[in-house]
Amino acid sequence: MAQGATTTAESMSLICEKLTFTYPAKEAPILAQVSFQLITPGFHSFFGPSGAGKTTLAKIITGELHDYTGQLITNGLDRILYSHNKERLPGWSSVDHHLSKVITPSLLPEKDKLVDLFGLADCVNARFDQLSMGQQNRVNLIRYLLQDCDLLIMDESLANVDELTRETIILSLKEMFPARYFIYISHNAREVAKFCDSILVFQGSNQVHAPRMLQGCNVRTNTERNSAELDAVLLEIMNAA
């Protein structure tokens, strides 16, 4: 059903080997010896404090930043998109009008479905700047979800959205786009521990060790909630950060 579902999701992977990157004006690298592998579709996360290099790594993956050392293999992930919470839609017409213009006509029913699921039915006829910040982020996410892509990086894409709605959205995405890779960048440790399959934990800007990959609970709809497992993952994240 979802975009990318027709391709063999198993053949796709994101492999990062000893990746190091330094911004031109800086002396110390922001990313040093980063290694991880994403070999299954689903929800993955970059977690860590601000300035740790999460967005930098996301931009390297999308090809926005070059001149790194090490290896980055986007095996079969031909279409990678990066969305973030600072994005805006143009203000000259309604949100619905903009969404309809950037979505393939065959996917318009999907758009309506996502609008309902994301709790935006009452505000799609408003202009973007008339929406709350949480609504704006959800609208932005919808247009990315309905693009033809294999990997979508969501950089704080659900910021300013209440916890319950966030949970509904994440669970829906897992259901609707089972063959797609998601990298969810968030500062909410509990959320990433609960919903993500794997979590790359970054340390602070003066990090001593390379980021560590941890296993998350990867909770789905109708999955039984195991609070002990969640606490264990949380503890591991705290230790790694």
């Binding site: 994005e87 805006r88 143009p90 950037v102």
Partner: peptide
């Protein structure tokens, strides 16, 4: 950038749209 990013990333950016966004 906060408006144009999406159109560039998805290959939808045309010069007319770019001019329209910046004018608006």
């Amino acid at each position: 950038t906060d408006i144009e990013h999406f159109y560039r990333a998805t290959g939808r950016m045309r010069w007319q749209l770019e001019v329209k966004i910046r004018t608006f």
